[in-house]
Design a protein around this nucleic acid. Structure first.
Length: 537
DNA sequence: TCTGGGGTCCTAGGACCC
DNA sequence: TCTGGGGTCCTAGGACCC
């Protein structure tokens, strides 16, 4: 514990939702929910306007829709969030070389390592200046906590929300923490809180009074001892920059449970390839392959296999994953599949040398097999080539009307609002989903106006009036009801597919010939996951 | 219309070795 | 022949975090 509050914790306010509001003028001051759009999606971030209605992170999106039907429900745009995050992290690195990112929107900074004078007035000034700089360069607000330890800095930033700064003076931490609920302490989730509650422990003060021995008895060695230290306000964990990843994994939840074993195998192959792509992009290799299977009843199991040495060969990972899948009974229906790699190693020079020779061949082979797997998956669901999906929130450009974003889509139509971060609320227009003038777009900068050479201004005036000001969701809320009844939950590739502009899943429709009979085998109907993406909680 | 996706760390049992 | 004991690796599961 330091004698001055030189550990800074920054937490951006409702990050994903705030970024969407900055990008989409018509949504400012309105309830916005970012997360999985599909039937099995969950909320990543709710704007403060949506939180008033009880919408929370990690809540099923279906439940959020019931609580706040008029909110705009948007799929995450990670490209944008990463751009903004990079700007913020750059500002943090200007304060100190010791920056520890926790997620896209959160980080610790060791101000002492940055040479900031170790007194309250000085660190407060640095924190306030940081908040101004963040607002100026990103257009968004962040909250800052300052304390002599990580845990306390994080509690301080939580108290500062939204758009504030709180300093916890060293020496006052126990009186401050004492009355707080145990859930305040990092590492105390629902299960630990329940164990403590049964032992009559509700507050931080009661946790400290229980004593280390009792906490270890209740929670185990590491957790008990750690919690005891935290309850006393003791936290000596250093700020550490740049930690190497220890595992890489990908997973998909399907809109409808998979029952066809052939399809399950094809999906595992796809996931293995995606996992290896990420592994290679990170320049790593891994020794242990893990698959994850979540059943229809949400029961979840993992199976793993450790190889003789680390690999980044897609064929090796695919085959290991396939062997592991053979150990699992999936007859009840599969809700989620995942493939991961742990035991990560960096490639040595000689690995690299050997790789260069085989890389091209391996990639060609991977591409061949990926196509084959995709083809097999398509055959399995007896489905034609998939047209483009227009997910709510995604950027688009129209040849005539310029840059905008998807408000909603259904029954062959897509509704677009044409506005940019630097304009006022824009107008809405509806197109056929296959309108050749409509293309995926790129995120636009939130501040500073149009980028150099930008050509997204409309060349003609939209001819459809904007929605009434009283309806914050615009056409969004109606998008779901535009869908043909009965197809919303099992169309091949329903809503929620990866937000990438390049992805190409089918709309929520099925061949007419497939009707009641297909309903008994709905697993074949879901082409995509309800990808909710990362959160910014 | 119940419950995402990407991680981290810890525990516990069995194998295996000295 | 009575069942040691510790360290390490592997596997599986669970809690927690954003």
């Amino acid at each position: 514990m330091r004698r001055a509050p030189t550990i800074l914790h920054l937490d951006m306010d409702a990050f994903f939702a705030a970024a969407e509001q900055a990008a989409k003028p018509s949504l400012r001051g309105k309830p916005v929910v970012v997360g999985g759009i599909g039937p099995r999606g969950v909320v990543s971030t709710a704007s403060y306007e949506a939180r008033v209605f009880g919408v929370r992170s990690a809540m099923p999106t279906a439940q959020a829709r019931r609580r706040c039907p008029n909110a705009a429900y948007l799929t995450p745009r990670f490209t944008l969030y990463r751009q903004v995050s990079d700007q913020v992290m750059e500002l943090l690195h200007a304060l100190s070389p010791l920056v520890e990112p926790l997620s896209l929107d959160e980080a610790f900074v060791d101000l002492e390592a940055g040479g900031v004078e170790p007194d309250t007035a000085a660190v407060r000034e640095v924190g306030e200046r940081l908040r101004r700089d963040i607002r100026r360069t990103t257009g968004l607000t962040g909250s800052v906590g300052l304390a002599g330890a990580k845990m306390l800095a994080k509690i301080a930033s939580e108290q500062a929300k939204p758009d504030g700064l709180v300093v916890i003076e060293p020496g006052r931490e126990r009186e401050l923490l004492g009355p707080m609920t145990v859930r305040t302490l990092p590492g105390v989730g629902p299960a630990t809180a329940e164990t403590l509650r049964r032992a009559g422990i509700h507050t931080v003060a009661e946790t400290a009074e229980a004593g280390e021995a009792e906490l270890v008895r209740l929670l185990g060695r590491a957790h008990g001892a750690g919690l005891y230290a935290m309850a006393l306000g003791r936290d000596e964990r250093p700020v550490v920059a740049e930690r190497d990843a220890k595992s890489i994994s990908v997973e998909d939840t399907f809109e409808v449970d998979l029952t066809d074993r052939t399809r399950v195998r094809a999906e595992v192959t796809r996931l293995a390839d995606r996992c290896v792509q990420r592994l290679r992009a990170a320049g790593r290799s891994g020794r242990t392959v893990v698959i994850k299977v979540r059943n229809y009843d949400f029961s979840t199991l993992t199976r793993s296999e450790t190889l003789r040495g680390p690999t980044d060969d897609p064929g090796v990972v695919r085959e290991a994953a396939a062997r592991l899948l053979d150990l699992v009974d999936t007859t009840g229906g599969v809700r989620l599949l995942g493939v991961g790699v742990t035991g990560l190693a960096d490639f040595t020079q000689e690995d690299l040398f050997a790789q260069v020779a085989t890389e091209k061949a391996a990639e060609e082979e991977a591409e061949r097999e990926r196509r084959a797997a995709d083809e097999a998956a398509r055959m399995a669901v007896d489905e034609p080539e998939r047209p483009r999906r227009w997910l709510p929130g995604l950027d688009v450009v129209h040849d005539e009307f310029g840059a905008g974003w998807v408000q909603g889509s259904g029954v062959g139509r897509v509704t677009v609002r044409f506005e940019q971060p630097w304009t006022g609320p824009g107008r809405v227009r509806t197109f056929r989903v296959d309108d050749p003038a409509l293309r995926p777009g790129e995120p636009l900068p939130l501040v500073g106006g149009p980028p150099d050479g930008w050509r997204g201004e409309p060349s003609g005036a939209p001819d459809e009036p904007a929605d009434g000001a009283g309806d914050p969701s615009g056409g969004l809320a109606g998008a779901g009801s535009e869908r043909p009844a009965g197809t919303a939950s099992h169309g091949p590739g329903g809503p929620g597919a990866a937000p990438s502009a390049a992805q190409s899943s089918a709309p929520a429709t099925r061949p007419n010939s497939v009707s009641a009979g297909a309903a008994s085998d709905p697993g074949t109907g879901s082409g995509t996951a309800s990808g909710a993406g990362m959160s910014s909680r």
